[in-house]
């Protein structure tokens, strides 16, 4: 009924039942494909009521032009740098700009080939700072809890906090310094599970959840290319 009348060229919102048993306006807000600290090409089409996501549909743009090339798979891109990158994005969205800035600086140093001996100390110091924060666990516990099934990649199990701590702990572990880039990536699984994790969340946590799943849309193009 309201679709007929246009206000400023935009149709008025329709209504639907919400989580708390009220009938509220429904707003369609797309997140992505291009946002700061957001996996490029990822689009989450949300139906919002208030700032609660009632429904989310996920799509990834640009898979069709698969070149089979991924940034993190090129030589000289150690896993360490990727973890620092993912941690930086999550910390920045969690609103801890300073810790994120340090992580980004360390990531750049790893990528430009700073020797291991020189960078291990700063990384450990940064990791200790992140692990020591008491507000961070309070804010991230229970955010983006993924279903605990056999198919769940080990790297993505748990909630946003366990994933962040996993990256931080692996970074401090000397064995990971030589680990090769990981092709068996969790991204396809994460993209599949993302809508169900996002539903019922508040908009505030949506971006935290996406950042905590460390989606690498480049990987999807690689998988596409491998499978033909």
């Amino acid at each position: 009924m309201d679709g007929m009348q246009l206000a400023g060229g935009v149709p008025m919102a329709g209504r639907a039942d919400d989580r708390d048993g009220l009938t509220l306006d429904q707003l369609h807000v797309p997140l992505g494909p291009l946002l700061p600290l957001w996996p490029p090409g990822l689009v989450v089409r949300t139906k919002l009521q208030g700032d609660v996501i009632q429904q989310a549909a996920v799509e990834v743009l640009g898979i069709g032009d698969a070149r089979g090339d991924a940034f993190w798979l090129r030589p000289g891109r150690p896993l360490k740098a990727r973890w620092l990158d993912a941690s930086a994005a999550l910390l920045a969205i969690a609103g801890w700009a300073d810790a994120a800035a340090v992580a980004r600086r360390l990531r750049d140093q790893v990528l430009t080939g700073t020797p291991q001996a020189e960078i291990a100390g700063p990384i450990r110091r940064w990791g200790r700072q992140v692990r020591r924060s008491r507000t961070l666990p309070w804010l991230l516990t229970g955010v983006g809890q993924v279903p605990d099934k056999p198919s769940t990649p080990r790297a993505l199990a748990g909630d946003a906090l366990t994933r962040l701590y996993r990256w931080v702990d692996s970074l401090a572990d000397p064995k990971t310094s030589v680990a090769p880039p990981d092709v068996a990536d969790g991204t396809p699984w994460a993209v599949d599970v993302l809508p169900s994790v996002l539903e019922g969340c508040e908009l505030a946590t949506a971006r935290l959840i996406v950042a905590s799943l460390d989606l690498d849309t480049d990987m999807l193009t690689v998988c596409e290319a491998h499978h033909g």
Partner: peptide, 11 residues
Amino acid sequence: GRRVPTIRMER
């Protein structure tokens, strides 16, 4: 204020 991540309202 810079030492602590953003505190979300639901918490």
